[in-house]
Structure formats: structure tokens, C-alpha cells
């Protein structure tokens, strides 16, 4: 077994561990996004879920960069994730700076943010599509190999299982409940991030870093910590070692 095969195994074991613990959907998806970007060797990974208005919402990202969010917002009008979500099939583009782009506005914004190639994988559950996983690379002209896409799809399926929180015979009602719960958890995290930008005097990325560091150090669910923060029940320490935005 090669080193990377071993790493893939470790990641899937880590992800299945998360499923049996006291489960925090945002923490799980965030970890998944980070592992996707590592294993698939891409620069950034975002996980987008469709809400009941049919809009794609970014629920987790390997890096909390504002530009990722902006790209995600744009994808409600055009882009690979929207196509992957609409068709249920993987979509990829290996040179976003080449002429004749299928999504001119998305491509221009992605290139400006430093991303030159993109892959989007649908998050499928039987015959429905819940959202998409977005993979962005700073390098152009490197289409993912079939093996890598298969691995990416396995990770996207892991995300779907994480959201629905069970594997087999899922009733539609449970899917609706869990999907809405994930979307609502993300809203709570965004509120806490905004709150902390003011109370700690930091940027949104660092605010999320502080939230996550506190949750991990104190072994608490990210959403519970976020709730305590916005309700004014918890004051977080400023982190001097926060990673740069």
C-alpha cells in the first residue's frame, strides 16, 4: 500500500469516527473539506447545499476565505456547482483563463481570486441531488484523473451520508430535517463570526478560527459555542496565533 493509499484509509476511518461521536455537522463538513483539498491535491474545497429556495449555500470550506463565499454566491446564477447540482454529474474545467468560457462571470471571478481550474462533484442521494462539492486549483491544465475523481466522489458521498446522518433507507422527511439543520447550523456560525469580528476586532476568517479553536480545545460542538457567543454567554479569548486570512 502506498503512502497516499494509507492516508486515504486514515481519512475514511477518521470520517466514520466522526459519525459515531457527538455529531457536529459543520465540524464534520469542515474537516471533510480540508481532507478533500489535501487528498485530491487542490487549493480549496467548498461544500454547497441547496436550500428550499433552490439556492446553493456554502456550508463548509477548506479555507474560510471570503472569496470562496463570493464564488459560491455567484454560482446561484452560473458555474460548475450549479451545473453539477442541476445535472447530477461531475463537471470540470481545466483552464478558466482560456477564451470561450461556459461560465464567463464565474470564470472571471475565479481567475481574479487566483483559481485556474475547477471541478464540481454532485452530492447525490439516490435519485435526488442535495448539493455539490467544489474543488478549485491554482494550477491550470491539470484535469483530475479518473481515479482522483472517483476518490472525490467517494468523499462527496461521505458528505451526503454525514448530512443525512445514516446510510440506508432514508425517508425523505429525515433528509429535509437534516438538510435544514445543516443549513441552519451554518447560519448560526455566520452570526457568531460577525459577532466576533466586532468583539475581538478581527476579520471573519480569524473569527471563525477563534470559534473553532475554542470548540476543539474545550471539546464542545461548534454550533453550541456559536450559540453561546451570540447570546452573550461566552467571551472568547483573542488568538495571537491565528492563521493569516
Amino acid at each position: 500500500m502506498s503512502a497516499s493509499d494509507r492516508r486515504v484509509r486514515e481519512v475514511f476511518i477518521e470520517l466514520s469516527d466522526t459519525l459515531v461521536d457527538d455529531f457536529d455537522i459543520i465540524e464534520f463538513l469542515d474537516r471533510l473539506a480540508a481532507r478533500c483539498s489535501e487528498l485530491l491535491d487542490v487549493s480549496a474545497c467548498g461544500i454547497l447545499l441547496a436550500d428550499h429556495h433552490g439556492a446553493l449555500n456554502l456550508v463548509a470550506a477548506s479555507t474560510e476565505q471570503a472569496r470562496l463565499v463570493e464564488l459560491a454566491q455567484l454560482q446561484n446564477h452560473e458555474g460548475p456547482c450549479l451545473d453539477a447540482y442541476a445535472t447530477g454529474h461531475p463537471v470540470q474545467h481545466s483552464d478558466l483563463s482560456a477564451p470561450g468560457q461556459p461560465w464567463p462571470r464565474f470564470s472571471a471571478a475565479a481567475v481574479e481570486a487566483g483559481y485556474l481550474s475547477v471541478q464540481a462533484l454532485p452530492m447525490r442521494l439516490r435519485d435526488s441531488v442535495l448539493g455539490a462539492v467544489n474543488l478549485l486549483s491554482e494550477a491550470a491544465g491539470r484535469p483530475l484523473t479518473d481515479d482522483t475523481i472517483a476518490l472525490g466522489q467517494a468523499l462527496a458521498d461521505a458528505a451526503t451520508i454525514g448530512i443525512v446522518h445514516q446510510r440506508a433507507q432514508v425517508r425523505q422527511e429525515i433528509v429535509t430535517e437534516q438538510l435544514q439543520s445543516a443549513l441552519n447550523s451554518r447560519i448560526l456560525i455566520e452570526q457568531a463570526k460577525g459577532f466576533l469580528t466586532h468583539s475581538l476586532g478581527v476579520g471573519v476568517d480569524e473569527a471563525f478560527g477563534a470559534l473553532r479553536a475554542y470548540a476543539r480545545t474545550n471539546n464542545r460542538r461548534l454550533t453550541d459555542v456559536a450559540n453561546d457567543v451570540v447570546e452573550g454567554r461566552l467571551t472568547l479569548p483573542t488568538r495571537s496565533d491565528a492563521p493569516p486570512a
Partner: peptide, 24 residues
């Protein structure tokens, strides 16, 4: 109702809540 679900709307609500000491 549709745009009220966007990330920046909720970040701003959190910021205003902290700034003015009001509920979200």
C-alpha cells in the same frame, strides 16, 4: 426571505448585535 439566508446577512446581524448589545 430568499436573500435573508445569505452568509453576509447573518455575519452583519452578528456584528450589529455585538456592536449595539442587542439580540441577533
Amino acid at each position: 426571505a430568499f436573500t435573508a439566508r445569505r452568509a453576509e446577512v447573518h455575519q452583519a446581524a452578528g456584528l450589529v448585535a455585538a456592536q449595539q448589545s442587542i439580540s441577533v
